[in-house]
């Protein structure tokens, strides 16, 4: 147990903070502790959680990706055009096209990183601009509202009428998100490939010497993020019911902040699915709570930014001073 807490210090902290926050919001507001609110939280966080599942794998393998959110916009547009030219398509086709398209974009990043030895932040800042610029150029910034029904219809998987007459419901993106979380957990926590990814991010030189295939690591990490961003793009359209080319612009930094808050380390080797989920949810709950407390929506981001800043400062300082005192 001690090892469990020691190895998962970030997760333990996040659970404690989330619980305290939930307790406070339950007491301070009437609506927070309700089924409707909880299901809403899940429905709105689903897309970010899927993105986070992809990004955390890249961070574990020692990379970083700035381009994934605009890549998801590219996937959305390509998928919409492809499906419409195929006469509308269906969910199966949608997942295949979006998934493959996402993987292809991820592979572009991986190829540049591996074959030309360019570090991931340089590559992905370049591809961020290339993807976004080309998308806006070719689409002329025009949105697509005329989507196939299967795609834009809200699919409610589970609903329940509460005593007050409000409906608590879980939609398709939540199910898809759960599957993505499970698969990512399986990949990084319990497969040989996932442990190789940790090892590669943790100590690349040692990984090379024990015979880990570097190219495979880059393609798997960025390919997985590609798959996730494809799926996230698909789900975001289902949620928003339109394809807007710049809808996801800027999302990359929000997701990055949440994933890192969840304990993933820039530089590799550290990060868990649980931490990621907690990081995304903590930010979502904070915004939700501020909303319920009647704080102006304009102030949400400010508070979230301040919380992350304080969290980063405190977590680093406390570790630092502890280490100093022991030494």
């Amino acid at each position: 147990m001690r090892n469990l807490v020691r190895a998962n210090a970030t997760e333990t902290w996040l659970i404690l903070v989330t619980l305290v926050l939930c307790l406070f919001l339950s007491l301070a507001t009437e609506q927070f502790f309700s089924l409707v609110n909880f299901t809403d939280l899940l429905n709105t966080s689903a897309v970010n959680l899927i993105f986070a599942m992809g990004l955390v794998v890249v961070l574990i393998a020692g990379g970083i990706d700035i381009s994934f959110a605009v890549a998801a916009s590219v996937v959305q547009y390509v998928t919409a055009l492809a499906l419409m030219s195929l006469g509308g398509g269906n969910w199966a086709l949608g997942f295949i096209v979006a998934g493959l398209c996402g993987i292809a974009l991820g592979a572009v990043n991986a190829a540049l990183i591996h074959h030309f030895r360019i570090i991931s932040i340089v590559v992905t800042i370049a591809t961020f601009n290339a993807f976004f610029g080309l998308l806006m150029f070719f689409t002329r910034g025009v949105s697509i509202y005329n989507l196939p029904d299967w795609w834009s219809d809200r699919i409610i998987l589970w609903e329940y009428e509460t005593a007050g007459g409000a409906w608590a419901e879980l939609t398709l993106p939540v199910l898809v998100m759960s599957i993505c979380v499970f698969l990512t957990w399986l990949l990084i926590g319990h497969s040989s490939t996932g442990r190789q990814l940790y090892a590669y991010g943790d100590n690349p030189e040692a990984a090379r010497r024990v015979g880990i295939n570097e190219a495979a690591m880059q393609y798997i990490a960025f390919g997985w993020l590609g798959l996730m961003l494809g799926i996230a793009g698909l789900m975001q359209v289902n949620y928003a019911q339109e394809v807007v080319p710049n809808a996801l612009f800027g999302r990359e930094l929000d997701v990055l902040a949440a994933v890192v808050l969840g304990g993933a380390r820039l530089g590799g080797g550290r990060g868990t699915v649980l931490g990621c989920v907690l990081g995304v949810l903590l930010i979502a709950i904070t915004e939700n709570g501020l909303n319920l407390l009647g704080v102006s929506p304009y102030a949400f981001k400010m508070v979230v930014g301040a919380i992350i800043l304080v969290a980063i400062t405190l977590s680093n300082i406390s570790l630092e001073t502890l280490v100093r005192r022991r030494a």
Binding site: L253, D254, L256, A257, K301, V303, V304, G305, I308, L309
Partner: peptide
Amino acid sequence: LAMMIFLRG
């Protein structure tokens, strides 16, 4: 990044 989110907010 945190400072950016804070200042934007």
